[in-house]
Write a protein that binds this DNA or RNA. Structure first.
Lengths: 110, 110
DNA sequence: CTATATACATAATTCACTTATGTATTGACC
DNA sequence: GGTCAATACATAAGTGAATTATGTATATAG
């Protein structure tokens, strides 16, 4: 598991990118996908996940669709047109940040 | 300039590594070195820098030496033995985090 | 003689997160 | 048929690393 400190500021980027790559998903599904993709190194907590999804929706980057699965509620999230654009920007920003950090820390990734 | 959000959690790592690479330095010098190394993309604020240096010193990772430059005070910081070890760990942890993030975000660095 | 750079420091505030808690359904195991 | 774990949502309280603001003081350039 990674020090949660480093994760700060990356959650929105993760959510946007995962939704971009995997289409509409519901919250719990996102946690599982991220867990899988990261080899259990990134475990999203619900207390961070849901408020962030709500925030991204309020900002118009995500749109929702509520589906009843039997008696159970599922809330699907998908990128809006604007969300797709921002997702791209955020990932690029992250890559740029990594490059800067690599230089400052004098480390070589890969 | 990078979104300051991404920087969270990386400040200690930056300070420890810069001190490891450049030997004893004083606060202001560190800000200048990081600015230079990052091509002005990383600008450390004093409000973050000094409390973090004090904290690392309190934890025994840094030791200090006060030098008078004419009438001006300079406080030099250097890694302790333990600090050198932790510096190495933190950088390794960061590299590991980047690798995980690269997989999750499906991006290729370099 | 004034603005900028150098050099330290701390207090108030912000805000993204963790931790804790709550509700409810579904499935597996025995 | 009872219990535990997994599924699935949500919010509130608390934490802590940062920003922003402020303060002090010396040195230098124009």
């Amino acid at each position: 598991m990674h020090s949660p400190e480093l994760l700060k500021g990356t959650l929105q980027t993760i959510l946007l990118k995962v939704l971009k790559d995997h289409g509409k998903m519901y919250g719990y599904e996102i946690t599982q996908r991220v867990k899988e993709l990261s080899g259990s190194r990134l475990l999203l907590t619900e207390g961070a996940l849901y408020p962030t999804l709500h925030k991204l929706e309020a900002e118009g980057l995500l749109k929702t669709e509520i589906v009843m699965m039997g008696k159970r509620v599922r809330k699907y999230y998908a990128l809006t047109f604007q969300g797709r654009s921002i997702a791209k920007d955020r990932v690029a920003e992250f890559v740029d940040f990594i490059k800067t950090m690599s230089t400052v820390l004098q480390v070589h990734i890969n």
